[in-house]
Design a protein around this nucleic acid. Structure first.
Lengths: 135, 135
DNA sequence: TCTTTCTCTATAGAAATAGTAGAGATTATA
DNA sequence: TATAATCTCTACTATTTCTATAGAGAAAGA
């Protein structure tokens, strides 16, 4: 039932970029230093976020990363799905990552997991990085 | 955010035993056949469930497994915690498996995850195997 | 041209996942 | 009491996932 560090770090990096949304490009080094994250790992994560269109970058002196959308336009759900896959506790009740499993025969069990999925999903869909910044 | 097959199989095995609660000892073979589960893996899982006090067993002819408690006395939450650990999406908001993580500095994020944990936990605490049986 | 910074691909160790194998212990029953 | 049935226990293993690290390369700016 747990998030990977990849999701956690992606969130922290995006929070850092959100808090510095109007400061121009931010160096990976600065993000890692402020948030206390492993440098080379964050490079990879930022690249994934870039490919998915959440951040943009520039190379060379004064280069770095910045958000490609407003903090309010990026939801927690999108980021966790990108980094970790399904939010649902079992794939049988996943909207975006559905898969058949033996559990599926049991309606009562499916109902419980579906309710958990729906709550989790709603909560994360409705949380944007604008809600997560402290400054 | 996903359950392991260990949790899923443990639930299916317990559902099978719940549905046959008053039929005496049930052979592993029968459980696996009805629920379509891998035999040797289920042996291990049942052993874990036995050690934790949820089922009891008898060897030899007419042996097998049966619940050690009433279906209504066993919650989904207990079983998933036993097999998979924390229900919480991050250990920083786990009641039984708390651990400090870098996320912890961000109050808004912690709040979201705590609400998800509370919902998941409540839902699973309040679902017993009596709620999950079909017959 | 030199320095800075991101880019891209490959690699790797550790842990978790999802089982399998097989000898041993116990129980019922013929 | 022999035998078959069934659980018990420990060890093993293959695969995948997780959590990174390494290093050469490309682009931008001074």
């Amino acid at each position: 039932m747990k998030l990977s560090t990849k999701s956690e770090y992606a969130c922290l990096a995006l929070i850092d970029l959100s808090e510095n949304y109007d400061t121009g490009y931010i160096k990976i080094e600065d993000i890692c230093h402020r948030q206390n994250l492993p440098r080379k790992y964050i490079e990879q994560i930022l690249l994934t976020l870039k490919t998915a269109g959440y951040v943009k970058s520039r190379r060379g002196a004064n280069g770095g990363y910045m958000l490609a959308k407003e903090p309010g336009q990026i939801s927690l759900a999108e980021i966790v799905r990108l980094m970790d896959g399904a939010l649902a506790p079992v794939n049988s009740v996943s909207k975006y990552f559905y898969e058949c499993t033996p559990l599926e025969k049991n309606d009562a069990l499916i109902k419980v997991f579906r309710e958990i999925r729906d709550y989790t999903s709603d909560k994360m869909e409705n949380t944007t990085f604008a809600n997560l910044i402290s400054e």
